[in-house]
Amino acid sequence: MLVKWIRCTVADRRGFEQGQRKWAGLLGEPGFRGQGGGWSRTRPDVAHVFAFWESRSFYDSFMARSHDRLAGGQSGTYRDIEVKLFEYRFDVKTGFEPKFTDADVVRVAHCVVHEERVEHFALMQQKVWNPAMAGSPGMLRGLFAEASGSEFLVLSMWRSAAEHGKYRAERVERLSQRAETELDVAALSGDVVDLEPSWTV
């Protein structure tokens, strides 16, 4: 499965939201699995969108045919856009499905990992982080995905911001030490996203 992560700095919030609803046109596209997104909790002008495709070839075909028509509705509403593509590696918890209707927030972590530490980083994700997240109240599902250049995306969906906040407060520092995250990761950025139900496709 291909995971697409789009991050925009939005200049015209209302226009952007109206354009976002037009992405409902993705339904029926061959290989399309789902899309959702919302606003950053820390930076109110930043929007995140997550899209899922069965494979790179289905995605490339969509980009060549229909993308520009759907994207036209949002031109001029944002100042900058960053798009990254990742290949799904494994679930966080079990049975990942790209659905957003039961989640309130998405936590996204983007990690650039030292090349010689990639295998260790992926192993720690499976052995340390996954069980901790899977056992946290309110954590619904997630995935671990990889891009070229030792880049990784960890996406987790939570029933509420409060439940995600509790997990952060109680566990993250201790888990980081156990997983030797500082030794593995060259750069880490992330965000917590309040999902907008009207953006879900």
Rank of each mutant, 00 (worst) to 15 (best):
G28K: 06
P98E: 02
R69Q: 07
F100M: 05
R65H: 13
A134W: 03
S57Q: 15
T181F: 07
V172R: 06
D60S: 09
Q18I: 10
V83N: 00
I81E: 06
Y88S: 11
A51E: 05
G165H: 04
V3A: 13
V105R: 07
E151N: 13
A179N: 03
K84V: 06
A24V: 07
E119W: 12
E116F: 14
S66A: 01
Q74N: 13
S57R: 15
V83P: 00
G149H: 10
E54H: 01
E54N: 08
A11Y: 03
M139E: 03
R69V: 12
K22T: 10
S189L: 02
G28D: 04
H110L: 03
T200D: 14
E146F: 12
K99E: 13
F86W: 06
T101P: 06
G28E: 08
V192Q: 02
R13L: 00
L140I: 15
G72I: 07
E82D: 06
Q18K: 01
T9Q: 11
P98M: 01
R14T: 08
Q18R: 06
R168W: 11
V10R: 07
S66V: 02
G28W: 12
S148D: 14
P98R: 08
E116D: 14
S160Y: 12
W5P: 00
T101H: 15
A147W: 13
L188S: 14
T101F: 15
A145Q: 00
C111W: 01
V172L: 02
D12T: 01
G149E: 00
V154M: 05
G28T: 04
R41M: 11
T101S: 15
L123Y: 15
L195Q: 12
M157P: 00
V201H: 13
D12E: 02
F32G: 09
A134N: 02
L123Q: 15
L153S: 08
W5T: 06
G15R: 08
H110S: 10
Q177F: 15
F144Q: 08
F100I: 10
L26D: 06
R141W: 00
A161Q: 09
G25W: 13
E182M: 14
V192S: 07
P98I: 06
F152P: 01
F96A: 04
P197N: 08
C8M: 07
R7Y: 09
R174M: 01
S66Q: 12
T94I: 14
E87C: 04
A64R: 13
E151Y: 08
